[in-house]
Amino acid sequence: MASEKLIEKVRRDFSTHLKRSNLRATEQRYEVLNSILEMKGHFGAEDLFVKMKNEGKKVSRATVYNTLELLFDLGVVSRHKVGNVFVYERAFGREHHDHLICVNCGTIIEFRSEEIEKIQDEICKKYKFKPIRHTHQIYGLCAKCAGAKK
């Protein structure tokens, strides 16, 4: 899990973002943030909503979806399209990685490739481009689904 200092910085940044956007800093929005801070791996908005409801948290589905959007804009979570839905994950306190996403069953395989990172750096240098962040996603069929399609 991310360090306490990093978590506190995320909370402060979220507060600042809400103020700048003229949005209310509601208890429910902070409940969503706190639940995300506890999440491991990938999750859907609906998964997060159900988890929070099962824990007795009083939060609306709309608040979960809207807060996820705010946190995505702030860079607290990243999102990946899997089929017709978005899947989220914490974007801080984790080692950078990329994804293989099965378009059939939705399986997400995380991977890290120094070669890909090197090529991206070389391309940015060639075009005098300063990268801020990136995601690399390869869509296809996982081994199980590819075997079933044969």
Rank of each mutant, 00 (worst) to 15 (best):
Q137W: 05
L18N: 02
A148W: 08
E69H: 13
C142K: 01
N34Q: 12
R11S: 06
V50D: 09
G147H: 10
N104A: 13
L141G: 00
V64T: 10
Q120L: 14
L18T: 01
L141H: 01
K150V: 06
A25D: 13
L6S: 05
N54M: 09
L68V: 09
N54I: 01
I119C: 05
I132Q: 12
K125S: 14
L68P: 05
T135S: 14
A91W: 00
A91R: 04
G93A: 01
K149W: 04
H99M: 11
N84V: 13
I132F: 13
G56A: 11
H96E: 11
K81S: 08
N66F: 09
L141V: 02
M1N: 03
E38W: 00
E8S: 12
I138M: 08
F92A: 00
G56K: 07
L74W: 10
Y30F: 15
V103S: 13
G44F: 08
I132Y: 14
C124R: 13
A91M: 00
C105R: 05
R133D: 14
F14K: 02
D13G: 03
V64D: 11
E122S: 14
R20W: 04
A2N: 00
N54L: 11
R79T: 06
T107H: 12
E122C: 09
C124K: 13
G44P: 08
L23S: 02
G106N: 07
E31K: 10
H96Y: 11
E4S: 08
R20A: 05
V87Y: 11
T135I: 11
T63D: 10
S35T: 06
R61I: 10
K81N: 08
T107E: 13
C124P: 08
A148I: 10
I138H: 09
R24E: 08
C102R: 08
H80E: 14
S15N: 10
G140M: 06
